[in-house]
Write a protein that binds this DNA or RNA. Structure first.
Lengths: 101, 101
DNA sequence: CCCCATGTATCGGTCAACGATATATGTCGC
DNA sequence: GCGACATATATCGTTGACCGATACATGGGG
């Protein structure tokens, strides 16, 4: 799993968000390091939805503008936890390697 | 930077290695999680060499089989350190998020 | 009145990654 | 002596995530 997809899952980990909200949260989470474009977002959401990691929470229409909220599924949260552990292990190894030289 | 490229840099961080050695070391580092194929390896090495992150250390011929050793350049090591810090920060954030719920 | 922020969505291009494949030698077991 | 496997390098074609550009729509601020 690459960073953009990981950030999307992470942005949804505390509560459901709509597309644009995910974009903003992901940007904040990475401190502006990673900027998701809409193409990345909706493509990834589609794949995540198809895989059962994310699902539509609700649809709202506010002042003529539609908002589609997505939420993590149980499977999605599992995936996020696993991926986090995998990343943590790899980074731990790397730090160890880079330290003793 | 994706995992395969990261693992290649990491595999070269302690000493120069030849292609097949990188493959084995990367497999060991990730505990078999990530298996690099030759296509991935040589493609990535070419890109890394062109970018000045990796360079040819020496060429040996042992028992009719050629061995091409690669090493990290200073720039390559810098990149590896930066990338590790970036990954560490992101994983730290993720753990924090996943904890308080 | 125009720009910007908000909000969703599609399209096409790029490029890393990947599997399959090819070539060659040495070793081990049968 | 033969086949299977590990060692070792390399190429090719495909896939698919990612990304920028673009489109469309509304509301607010300068």
């Amino acid at each position: 799993m690459q960073d953009p997809t990981y950030l999307i899952l992470l942005a949804l980990s505390d509560r459901p968000r709509h597309g644009y909200g995910i974009l903003l949260e992901a940007s904040e989470l990475s401190r502006g390091t990673i900027r998701l474009g809409p193409g990345t977002l909706y493509g990834a959401l589609e794949r995540l939805e198809e895989a059962g990691h994310v699902e539509l929470d609700r649809e709202e229409i506010e002042e003529g503008r539609p908002r589609r909220y997505f939420r993590l599924t149980r499977r999605g949260r599992s995936l996020l936890v696993e991926e986090t552990e995998r990343r943590e292990a790899l980074v731990g190894l790397a730090k160890q390697r880079l330290a003793h030289r």
